[in-house]
């Protein structure tokens, strides 16, 4: 247990490089505070974020996402199409119980979302691997299944191994902090080709699909409750006061050498 509060920021939409640079700054902030920090944010246009080491060639070969801006995350996992999702970045210092055991960090955030979605009647669950799982290295995050991913049964149907994945997260473990990127799929993203559209809360008839801010609020309430800490909400965007620093850092994420590192 730690006394440090859970710091929360609600940010406006930004482009991919700016969002990635801001998340790196969030990790520094978590380290400085000695406690967890979360920010929720949007994207200035539908964007594909590639996992840290996904081959760029897989993105260029995916015709369904052609024309969309591309940014490479520092975190692992598969490519995410941002445009109809609730995106978050959470950071925690390694001195924190979540940071010392990153899998516990991952599990805590997903388990809390299961509880939140249950308040809207959606029976989500943490995925348990099965023989019928799609390939673990599928290009798109929501085409993959990994232990702990959030999946949910279709309305009126019993759970099956092929239930849609509605939330995925991935981490970057730095020297003194762990940062976790994640995405809750609110509905199909119509900015991409049909083969890259995945069912989200809308297609599962979950009323929360149009209430991402309410989902996030209930989620952080549960996270803070689980940690036994208060929430420190911030009325300003996280980037305020750090604009130049973030703009400089964003250049790395715009650089073709970063995007094409593999």
């Amino acid at each position: 247990m730690t006394a440090a509060s859970l710091a929360v920021w609600w940010d406006e939409a930004a482009d991919g490089p700016t969002n990635m640079a801001t998340d790196e700054r969030l990790a520094e902030e978590a380290d400085r505070r000695g406690g967890p920090a979360i920010r929720f944010y949007g994207w200035s246009s539908p964007t594909v974020s590639l996992g840290g080491f996904q081959p760029l060639a897989e993105a260029t070969a995916c015709s369904a996402i052609a024309g969309l801006p591309l940014v490479r995350r520092p975190s692992g996992g598969g490519a995410i199409i941002h445009g109809s999702d609730l995106t978050y970045a959470a950071a925690v210092p390694k001195s924190h119980p979540w940071g010392a055991r990153p899998q516990a960090f991952y599990d805590a955030l997903h388990a809390a979302m299961v509880e939140v979605l249950a308040t809207w009647g959606l029976e989500a669950r943490l995925h348990v691997p099965s023989a019928s799982d799609p390939p673990a290295d599928a290009f798109l995050c929501f085409s993959r299944r990994a232990p702990g991913d959030l999946v949910a049964a279709r309305p009126g149907q019993a759970p099956t191994p092929s239930d849609p994945k509605i939330m995925g997260s991935a981490q970057r473990r730095l020297g003194t902090t762990v940062i976790q990127h994640g995405s809750l799929l609110l509905g199909r993203c119509l900015a991409v080709g049909p083969e890259a559209r995945h069912d989200g809360l809308t297609e599962l008839s979950c009323a929360a699909a149009t209430l991402p801010r309410e989902i996030a609020s209930r989620w952080i309430d549960r996270l803070a409750g689980g940690l036994g800490v208060d929430i420190t909400p911030h009325g300003r965007a996280f980037a305020v006061g750090h604009e130049q620093e973030i703009a400089r850092a964003a250049e790395r994420f715009r650089d073709d050498r970063w995007t094409g590192r593999r």
Binding site: G77, A146, R172
Partner: peptide, 13 residues
């Protein structure tokens, strides 16, 4: 260097 697992990328120091 860096090492990637299914859900995380970690630095080697």
């Amino acid at each position: 260097g860096e090492i990637e697992s299914v859900k995380a990328v970690s630095d080697l120091y």
